[in-house]
Design a binder for these strands. Structure first.
Lengths: 368, 368
DNA sequence: CTTTAGCACTCTCGAAAAGAGAGTGCCAGA
DNA sequence: TCTGGCACTCTCTTTTCGAGAGTGCTAAAG
């Protein structure tokens, strides 16, 4: 009966997916014929649908319900059937403008990207902060007086990664004091990794007379602690947004989902959990960091069981070999893939471009 | 029939509230007698319940359902009936320890406070960042080189408020260049408010020959823009956590709430909205900033209609007359008030104490 | 060999009905 | 003032039933 994926079957598959993505209702043969003016009868379409089902691209919830795409169906759609669109120019312009307005505030880029992704894809979004491609390497520290007894330590690492940390002073220090101390430590620690810094600290401790003053010691400890904390949390930080957008999808609205309301609530709760804890995304993000282009993970294809009903679209952003992060969209497998993918692609490349401008100098003269 | 709030009625009211908070089910007369070993018959309790209802402290969903507290009932409970407890010492110790572990990272305090509040109260939490009590007043700026073409501007304001902003350099600048520029601007802008800075900028622009170099101009603009943005968003930033904890309350679980599932879903969605947008909280927070001690707002007592089903417990934290913020718990009116209040009280005073240590010097010698 | 019309069959969804259970309100008596 | 008893009310659950949607199959037509 099934003689492979003929052209017509592909067309029908495409229509089924488009229809299902739009309406969130199982698709019936007659609907297809009527809505898309196919020049065949519903019965013919039914035969084709049955074949597509046998091939694994569609499925049936019950005997007398319309068809719903399987993960395999979506995969084929994304790979071969989808129209490759881009965001409209006005949309692009608007997004660029928003990024322009927060230029200079890198932290805000992350929030902005998350919010734009969520709005354009009408689903949840995830964004990880920029991270050095390789180990954190110290560059310099500046100490800024905030009070008589409080200073802000600004730690700068290679690749432009910055971390600030408040520091309670044991005694009143003049700005000159602070500057001298910062300069000393900057030169001592320049280009070192965390392990080097720790070595240096233990070595100094073993000598009878320390090479450093009390205050310098304090700052050194702070640096080591900060680097440690930074590396530890490097993998884990995921910013997410668009919960509301995702939860407005029919999957989470019992009346429309035509199913037990409790299941919808349970699903909602699990979705929250995924976004908050990042569970289920954990393995996907390193993978996306290591890949080029836009990654699409459909349903349970690649990850934990709890992600079986969700798709994830990820792309890397940043400056290659310097600092990179990952951003993307997450939502029910019934998702507007073309639009979500365009959105992820556009925003990742926009951010990469903007970052490249900032990092230009570094790329021209890569250090060691 | 109703001869006021007799002692016994108060006892019964207290029991009804405790029972309802625990079980989330309307409380029946017989349950009270059985569970709390009252030495009267259910019929007697029923009479008292009817009286309490007439007095407005309890209500009836339907004729043959148990009683549920009204907002007024909760209010009386909080004001007069509640046992005034504190968190257990092990809990206190644990919380202190967690704050100790992130000492020096003020930003993390906010997250930590949110997460601790959420866990102890089993509800959502809100925390606003520290803000100067009065207008933002400039103190100094430091410029830290991150790259050849990129610097980080660290703006320090009176009261220890810090903001960082990246700055793309038009040309390569030596560290000395940066330092000189920062020093110049720090001295020019010292102690100025936003409006003064803007005045200074327009005045300078009207002169034929500017007093400042190109680069200095650029940094000045940056400062003005940053101060503007900072003040604009000052009121709005609310960090929140504990969504999952709150949504695990029976109110959001249709099966247990014994009601239409769709309503539970709708409620969930609105709860999300409140937490994300801060709508409904907006008026409460300035109010809490201006009050001492722990504020309890029950149901629609004070705020918008959308908060009718929620209670909010808020307290100010920080250093009086210097920097303050607000933190608290939000959840269904059926809430463990004693525990939530203790938790808010403990965490706000803990954070205040820790901050006071840091700001000690400032308090000793308040500036102008 | 492919397409189509017709029709029986299956399954869900919604409404209506009926029964069980919980809890109250009230009355009369202690 | 308290208590036991009892009728009454209301909800919640389950069941039943009919309507409707959509398929799968078969047999005939192109």
């Amino acid at each position: 009966m099934s003689s492979g994926l003929t052209e017509r079957r592909q067309t029908i598959l495409k229509l089924v997916i488009q229809e299902f993505v739009e309406t969130a209702q199982p698709v019936a043969s007659e609907t297809l014929v009527r809505k898309y003016r196919l020049n065949v009868s519903p019965a013919t379409v039914r035969n084709e649908l049955a074949a597509l089902e046998e091939l694994g691209y569609l499925m049936h919830l019950h005997t007398s319900a319309g068809r719903v795409p399987t993960d395999i169906g979506y995969r084929f759609f994304v790979e071969n059937l989808m129209d490759r669109t881009t965001l409209s120019l006005p949309e692009q312009r608007m997004i660029r403008h928003q990024f322009y307005q927060v230029r200079g505030e890198l932290d805000q880029w992350i929030q902005l990207a998350g919010s734009v992704l969520a709005r354009t894809a009408q689903n949840a979004s995830v964004v990880t902060p920029l991270r050095s491609a390789d180990r954190l390497r110290f560059r310099q520290v500046e100490l800024v007086a905030i009070h008589d007894t409080m200073a802000l330590a600004v730690l700068v690492f290679h690749g432009g990664v910055v971390k600030q940390q408040t520091l309670a002073l044991d005694a009143v220090r003049s700005p000159d004091d602070l500057r001298r101390c910062a300069a000393r430590i900057s030169s001592v620690l320049a280009d070192l990794e965390l392990s080097d810094v720790e070595d240096l600290l233990t070595r100094d401790q073993q000598q009878e007379g320390s090479e450093f003053g009390d205050f310098e010691r304090q700052v050194l400890d702070l640096v080591a602690r900060a680097m440690d904390a930074f590396e530890a949390q490097a993998q884990e930080q995921i910013y997410s947004d668009g919960l509301i957008e995702m939860l407005s999808q029919p999957e989470f609205i019992p009346a429309l989902a035509r199913e037990d309301a409790e299941r919808a609530v349970e699903r909602m709760r699990r979705a929250l959990d995924i976004l908050k804890s990042g569970r289920g995304l954990g393995s996907l993000i390193p993978q996306a960091l290591a890949s080029d282009g836009v990654q699409v993970i459909i349903g349970g294809e690649n990850s934990a069981d709890e992600m079986r009903e969700y798709s994830v679209i990820l792309a890397r952003y940043g400056v290659e070999r310097a600092v990179t992060g990952v951003l993307g969209v997450i939502g029910p497998t019934r998702m507007a893939y073309p639009r979500s993918i365009s959105s992820v692609r556009y925003i990742s490349s926009l951010m990469s471009d903007l970052l490249a401008e900032l990092y230009q100098a570094d790329q021209r003269s890569p250090e060691s």
